[in-house]
């Protein structure tokens, strides 16, 4: 079996469409040799390796042998620097610009391993785009919120995938987390006891203090905090889950249906590193009044 990817894989609606189309066409194969042809692919946003990797892992779970063929040199360089192609028989190449954030897969129990990964990539790194301490702290928190959401809500057996890229000249960082879990639509539909679309489910999950959490530990803040941060920072937040796609930027949200579903949930965050806000909120309450 051979599947071709299009010219551009960017972290946008079309990028998600391209990768979910591949999944839709290949998901029912078992014990096959599957070749992904990248001959036409001239650009691949590095952080989308989290989505691509999740899909290929899922195909591998059906005991298919997956190979990436005809990878153009520029794309091969991007996908080798972050370690993605080493999962498919190629070798890593040094990241001389130190702008790659490595591709990794985690199990839901790997929270310490994930913390170490974030420390390595964002705390102990030699080169980072210049950014305020407050912004760096807020960004790290946001990444952990995304990972925690995947751990708490996805019920994934196959794992959580992450990857990112620094763009020092453009003053931005992209980071994507993808899980192969049940997806937001199923969680919200079961909670509301009403079959709703994936788009509606994402909108519901990002509004007010809505949460599908039940039991002794409350929830309902993670996605709201992410949206508020992105509004202040001027970045962008995207969620793809099942066949729903949602995007927030410039303090405005939009959503669309994907033609083919993603088998889990993807959260992509892009931050503006030139932002000089302190992120220390002024408060009208004393620390003794928290409770």
């Amino acid at each position: 079996m051979r599947f071709a990817l299009p010219q551009l894989i960017r972290h946008d609606y079309e990028g998600f469409e391209a990768l979910t189309r591949l999944y839709a066409h290949a998901k029912d194969y078992h014990l096959e040799n599957i070749e992904i042809d990248l001959e036409r692919t001239r650009w691949f946003d590095a952080d989308m390796c989290a989505v691509f990797g999740a899909i290929l892992y899922s195909l591998g779970d059906n005991l298919n042998t997956v190979a990436l063929v005809n990878v153009l040199p520029d794309v091969e360089r991007i996908l080798s620097k972050n370690g993605f192609l080493s999962h498919y028989g190629k070798v890593n190449i040094p990241d001389s610009w130190e702008t790659a954030i490595s591709y990794q897969r985690f199990d839901v129990t790997d929270d310490r391993f994930f913390s170490g990964y974030i420390e390595t990539e964002f705390i102990h790194r030699n080169k980072l785009p210049e950014m305020s301490m407050g912004l760096m702290k807020k960004f790290r928190e946001s990444i952990f919120e995304i990972f925690s959401n995947a751990v708490l809500h996805s019920s994934t057996r196959m794992g959580i995938f992450s990857c990112g890229q620094l763009f020092p000249k453009q003053s931005k960082i992209d980071f994507t987390v993808a899980d192969l879990g049940v997806g937001i639509r199923q969680n919200v539909s079961e909670y509301l006891e009403d079959e709703i679309s994936a788009e509606q489910a994402i909108i519901w999950a990002t509004e007010k203090t809505n949460t599908t959490k039940e039991g002794p530990v409350p929830g309902g803040l993670g996605l709201k905090l992410l949206g508020e941060f992105i509004d202040l920072n001027g970045g962008c937040l995207q969620i793809a889950s099942d066949d729903g796609y949602w995007r927030r930027s410039n303090k405005s949200s939009s959503s669309l249906a994907l033609e083919y579903p993603f088998p889990g949930t993807v959260v992509n965050i892009e931050i503006n590193t030139a932002d000089t806000l302190s992120y220390i909120l002024s408060t009208d309450w004393d620390v003794d009044d928290i409770f």
Partner: peptide
């Protein structure tokens, strides 16, 4: 506790009260 973290804790506490 740093002010930024105290603000997050306050949000969590207020949301927990609503949740219960």
């Amino acid at each position: 506790i740093e002010p930024q973290d105290a603000a997050l804790l306050k949000r969590v506490v207020d949301t927990a009260k609503l949740y219960f």
